[in-house]
């Protein structure tokens, strides 16, 4: 029994139960991403694990050790906030050194470790900078270095890239993912951005109704989200309601009523008139670089299909579902 064990944690704010009887395990050296919409309790869970908030019920364990009653400063966890919680009255070096200094690490080895950390996050030569003079990306790098410096057994990241622009975010996400893996760092990472989750996670845990609704590797979850909520969180678009006969405008997709997911990448569009499938009208065609996202209206449905060719709006196409395109959801 190693790694982080969250057992039956419940937290309420007054009447509102944010977390209910939540269980989660993060194995050693594993990066788990908590994915969920805003207000789903992701940050609350992170604060409970860090020890910044006491759970109303349940335990937090590391290996065999019960952390629930251990004060935050004795837990040996690292935490990176969404935006700039750097100490404004200290320079970059002093910020990164803080945890080491508090732990009583002697000055000489402290300086060495800080330099190593800064070089690890790509900020060589930034030691003497004032934290006011940093860009958004640099700020988050310093925050990461500060959290990693004392060698926490568990690193918690609370939407650390949330305030950065898209391009910077993609680059930093990739770098941090690689860094965590190379360090073998156990980490619990919170985000509402599925691309970030895909890029960084060993496993993704989707939060819903105060619990972990589903947990699995990115590919597992993408292929079979299991529930409508999880499918939405992962950014699936083609969620289709079926009638009692399991039918919709695309034909009979399942045995009975319910919602199914149609994987757009298993849908092929071709010239109409060859009779291979139902015919629809292209209502939108958005060029996305590598692919073009095409939306086709078939009867009362609109279905999104990634296409490698550009298709004109208004043209008629046949929509063909390949095997495995349809996945039933709860």
């Amino acid at each position: 029994m190693s790694g982080l064990h969250v057992e039956g944690v419940g937290v309420s704010y007054g009447e509102l139960a944010v977390l209910e009887n939540l269980d989660l395990v993060v194995q050693r050296s594993e990066v788990v991403v908590l994915l969920g919409p805003s207000g789903s309790g992701k940050t609350t869970l992170l604060r409970v694990v860090a020890g910044l908030r006491r759970p109303d019920s349940g335990r937090i364990r590391w290996g065999g050790e019960d952390l629930t009653d251990i004060a935050v400063h004795r837990r040996g966890v690292g935490l990176v906030f969404q935006d700039n919680a750097l100490f404004p009255h200290r320079d970059v070096e002093q910020n990164v050194a803080f945890g080491l200094r508090v732990a009583g690490v002697p000055t000489s080895s402290r300086i060495r470790q800080v330099a190593e950390m800064l070089s690890l996050v790509g900020l060589d030569g930034f030691a003497a900078r004032s934290v006011d003079a940093l860009s958004g990306g640099e700020t988050q790098r310093v925050a990461l270095a500060r959290a990693l410096a004392p060698g926490p057994r568990l690193l918690l990241l609370d939407e650390p890239f949330g305030s950065l622009d898209r391009v910077l975010r993609d680059r930093l996400v990739g770098e941090v993912g690689g860094l965590l893996r190379s360090l073998g760092q156990t980490a619990l990472h919170v985000t509402h951005d599925r691309d970030e989750a895909f890029a960084i996670a060993d496993r993704i845990a989707v939060l819903g109704k105060g619990r972990i609704e589903r947990i699995g590797t990115p590919t597992e979850l993408w292929a079979e989200p299991g529930t409508v909520h999880v499918a939405r969180c992962l950014g699936h678009q083609n969620l289709i309601e079926l009638d009692s006969g399991g039918r919709c405008a695309l034909g009979r997709l399942h045995e009975g009523a319910g919602t199914v997911l149609v994987h757009g990448d298993r849908v092929v569009i071709g010239p109409s008139g060859d009779g291979r499938g139902p015919v629809g009208t292209v209502v939108e065609s958005v060029f996305r670089g590598e692919i073009t996202l095409v939306r086709v209206r078939v009867g009362n449905l609109v279905i999104g299909v990634p296409s490698t060719e550009r298709v004109d709006v208004g043209s008629e196409v046949a929509v063909v579902l390949e095997p495995g395109a349809v996945v039933p959801l709860d």
């Binding site: 860090a50 020890g51 910044l52 004060a71 935050v72 400063h73 004795r74 837990r75 040996g76 966890v77 690292g78 935490l79 906030f81 919680a85 750097l86 100490f87 404004p88 803080f98 945890g99 508090v102 732990a103 500060r146 959290a147 004392p150």
Partner: peptide, 11 residues
Amino acid sequence: RLREAAAVLGA
């Protein structure tokens, strides 16, 4: 959050 950050870092 500055206080929290310091506490998490062991202060």
